[in-house]
Every structure is written in C-alpha cells, then in structure tokens.
Design a protein around this nucleic acid. Sequence first.
DNA 1: GCATGTGAAATGCTTCACAGCC
DNA 2: GGCTGTGAAGCATTTCACATGC
Lengths: 265, 265
Amino acid sequence: MTPDADNAPTAEMPAVEATAEPEAVRAKSIPEAAVARLAVYLRVLSGLAEQGSTTISSEELSQAAGVNSAKLRKDLSYLGSYGTRGVGYDVQVLVSQIERILGLTRKHKVAVVGIGNLGHALANYGGFPGRGFPVEALFDLDPDLVGVPVGGLPVSHLDEIPKVCAERQISIGVIATPPTAAQSVCDRLVAGGVQCILNFAPVVLQVPAHIEVRKVDLAVELQILSFHVARRADLAANGNGGADGGPGGADNGSVNGHGNGMVVR
Amino acid sequence: MTPDADNAPTAEMPAVEATAEPEAVRAKSIPEAAVARLAVYLRVLSGLAEQGSTTISSEELSQAAGVNSAKLRKDLSYLGSYGTRGVGYDVQVLVSQIERILGLTRKHKVAVVGIGNLGHALANYGGFPGRGFPVEALFDLDPDLVGVPVGGLPVSHLDEIPKVCAERQISIGVIATPPTAAQSVCDRLVAGGVQCILNFAPVVLQVPAHIEVRKVDLAVELQILSFHVARRADLAANGNGGADGGPGGADNGSVNGHGNGMVVR
DNA sequence: GCATGTGAAATGCTTCACAGCC
DNA sequence: GGCTGTGAAGCATTTCACATGC
C-alpha cells in the first residue's frame, strides 16, 4: 500500500462543540483507508456514467472496484445516505458526493520538481489526472533545462521554488528529484506555502506537522512483491504435507480479496 | 494495504502440535504493514552502512525512518531477536536479516510493458532500485518502437508477452500502459507465468487468486491529498472560532495527548 | 422481495509499559 | 543506566448479519 497507509490522522474531534451545526455536520472523520477507496469508486463511476449507466447496486460497483460489497456500502455511508433501498445508487449522485468529500470541486495547483525521466512523464500527463490538478510550475537544477518549456510550461530553477509557489498559489508539490535533493526541495516547497507533498524520491522526508505527505516508492513496492514471492516459495517448499494437488489448489481460503493498496501505499 | 494476508497456519500457535515442525517454523505470518516498513528500514540501514555506522539504537533508526520506536522494535522482532539490550542493533546484521525476509537474496526478473513516458523512466532506472530487480524484457504495441533498444534492451511486441516472459522466467510484470490496454496486458503477463504485477495504470485489474498485485495510482494519491486540503479548510472555516493562530495550530489535542511528541509526519 | 445502511463482532495494527539483559 | 523484546491494552478497519424502507 498503499500503500501506505501509515499516517496518523489523529484528529478525532469528538463531539465538536456547542455551536450546533444546523445541518449535516460533515467532518465526521472518515477513515483514511476509506478515502483511498472512494477515489477508486469515483473513477469507476465516472466510467459508468460515460457509458450511460444511471444506477448501480453495491454488489456491482464493489465487483468493479475490487472490494466486497459490505465494505463498499460502509464506505459510501460516510458520505451520507444517498442510495435507495431495493434499488441501488444513482451514479451521478455518487459522483457528485464523492467529489464533494474529496474536495474536487476546487482546483489544486501542482508543481513538479525534478524534470528527469519521471518528471517529464508527470509534466506531460496532460493536465494531470482527471482534471482538477493543473500543473502550474516546473523546477529543475540543470541550467540546460531552465527556461525550456516542457509540456507548454517553462522550467524554473530550484532556487525559485519558494517565490514561484507562493506567487502561483501552488497547493501540491510533487518531488521527482534524486534522493539527495529531495529534503532540500521539500523544505523550499514548504517555504513556498504548499500544503501537501507527493514524494517519488526514495527518502523519508522530515516535514512540519501541518504538511501532508504521501510517498510513492518503487523500490518498496518491488520489495513487497518480492516478499510475497518468497513467502509463497517457502510455503510450497515446506508448507503443506503431501496431498495438495499442485499449485493453485492450495485452498487457503483467502477469498479473492485482491486488493491492495495502495500504497500505498 | 494489501489485505490478503491470509495466513496459512490459521490461529496462533500456542504450543506445538501434531505435525511437529522440525525446526523454526518461520512462516510466522508477518503483518503486511510491517513488510512495507521493513523495506524502508532496509534503505536507511544501507545508507548508514555505507557511512560506516556499525550499530544503531531503535530510537535513532526510528527517527530516520519516520516511525516511532515501539513500532520499529515490534517490526524488527518479526525477524527474530537480533538486537543487543543496552546497546542496539548491528547494522549489517539487520540488513542481512531484512534482505532474507524480503526475499532479496534471490533476483526477481522484471518486465516493463508500455514504453511511453513512464515506461521509459522505468526502463532507464538503471537496473531498477537497489539491485535484485533486473529489467529483462520490454514490451509495447507501437510498431515504431518494437525492435528499438531502450536502456540497452530491445522492445518486443505485446503479443510476445506470454512467450518471452515464460522463456526469460520473468517474475514481476510492470504495467505502464494506458488504462484501456491494462487488463489485456495483465492477462498476458499471467499467461506468461509472472507471479506479481505492479500496476501504474488507473484501472482495477482482475487477476487469479494466486497473483499478487500492487498498484501505484497517481490520481488516487492526488485525490487523497485533495481530501486533506479540503478537510483542513473545513476545519479552519467553521471549526474553531477566531483565535486560532495560523494554520497548523488547530490540532485540538486529542485529549489524552500523552507525551511522546514524536516528529513523525 | 430486494438492496441499503448500520450496530456489533471479529480481525488486524499500533502503542504502552515494563521485564529482562547487557 | 540504557535499550531491547514483548504481553497486554487501545484503536482502527473490516466483516457480519439483519433491521429498515422502498
């Protein structure tokens, strides 16, 4: 995962205060794990909407999203009650509600730092996934790159990070630099006022408490896969006594869960 | 995080039983979340080793890895008892033990499918992170790319996936194609005998139960960050009256705070 | 009848706190 | 005195199972 799912959201906010909320109190504190899945549901639902579906049951949607239906319903219940018993959910309504919860009704400007192979790929992502995340600044250290437009946007120097980020109101910084530069880049992004960082560099960043960091770590992902290969080999080697019946049989229940995550980390 | 985690031996293991295991039973079933962190510790430790450190305490290592020390010790305890009370851990010993558990003592051949921006980045990663994951096959649909060497390896056509993967004993397939092609590529990788898949395409793959899948989903990561920005904005907007004192303050200490500040994220 | 929504149970993960050992 | 290793407590997430309402 999501990988990752580390993160300690804390923030409980028990009863909130007196100020009676006139309406839905929202901020009900929705589990981090559920948030990640909502993003997946959103993509599936958008696809369905384009194909003309208007309603869908939890069973169908859960299949398409690779989770079980109970989990899906629980996740959707965090949004409020937007289904119809005996029928299912209205696709458009779910799309809107998930977008609302995820804060996608507003744009989040992105800066990409480190225009190497990966940075290029990110900068060219065509406005970044699903709209709402326009790339509005690019940075690199290399003098040969500074000034050159990549994906229609000129590259600025690392030193400009704080100034440019502040000016353009960047809210998300993406770090795609070599590991040695990452912490320093991170500090400058924070100085520039970004609120969140998506880190592709294989280092653990130190950040102030109010900055949200997510990391995407290729080496870690591969090593997790390696672990599973090894474990499977172990089991096959000495795990089961005779019987069995070749691979695949193994049984072990494990439903088809599948899943994953994240990244998650 | 990957759910799956089915453990073979079910229950605990209160005492020995029936089929006496001749030796250490290893397969102790280590939590998925811990596996991901072990990979991080490994990187930190490798760095330390290169700088000449020979021992380290749980406190220091946990700081460097961005977790708290209790968690770190618990994680390391899954490896066995390799620390020295009153002293700390031997860096080299930990490195070896983590490598053993993660199955890094053996190579895992990788195939990259989809040689676009991202695929290029991956193919050029210079043998892939930290050794042990050699890229040994590249695939794309584009006739202009087939046959062209990328990072020293010629690109083959998608149709060759099953054959080439089987021949070269590829164990990990990396999908870096557009979403529409991903499921079909996945099926071919499975046909070619790969055991694990790392999926960069924004789709939920359907795979047989014995295949391990991890996904890296840029859109999901950004949307999770968006959620946190939104939540924070919400809190700031109606959470607390004036006072405050800038962002970050909020916190609202979850009551029992409990010392232990801990930097963490 | 059928599918949602949700308390409650089960499972899994993290944190605490301290015994054990150097 | 310091630091590891770990049972037990505390939380978080997932799953169950069924009342609820269309």
